[in-house]
Amino acid sequence: MPGSDYAGLVTRMAALIVDAVVLTLVVPIMANGPPSMWAAITGEAPGWLKSLCQIAAALLPILYFGLLWWGTGQTLGGLVFGTMVRRQDGEHLGPIRSLLRAAVGLLLPIVWLAGMVFVLWDPRRRALHDRLFGTVVLRKVRRV
């Protein structure tokens, strides 16, 4: 499907790598930053703060993907590569669908990545999880 308005496998994987790099940098900061700052000030971070930060760090990827897909349809990787997630009718994703899509992708990454192969023959370049959640990944700018 040359010249398609849907993002292909290379673009989607590249955007996913950008998001992974961002989260790799941010999640440890979220998990360890506040306790370290607390420890620097008072000497020892309380247990509840450490637990809270661990939970926030664990939830951060789901919130990152879910909220951005819901809000704009674009994560940072999507912004760089000009892709956006939409429903099959072109409308924005709702919050439940976005969070579920993110949760499935993060909890079952192998299935997620394996399902990306579907992009290669699907007419609308949909991956397995796109078929499951009724979504498509559109290319925002197409100058070629």
Binding site: G8, T11, R143
Partner: peptide, 21 residues
Amino acid sequence: ATEELQENSARADDRLEDSFR
């Protein structure tokens, strides 16, 4: 730079699918 990156990735998508087919 971003637009060039997007164009290159789009071309790569097309080439990969052509090769696959």
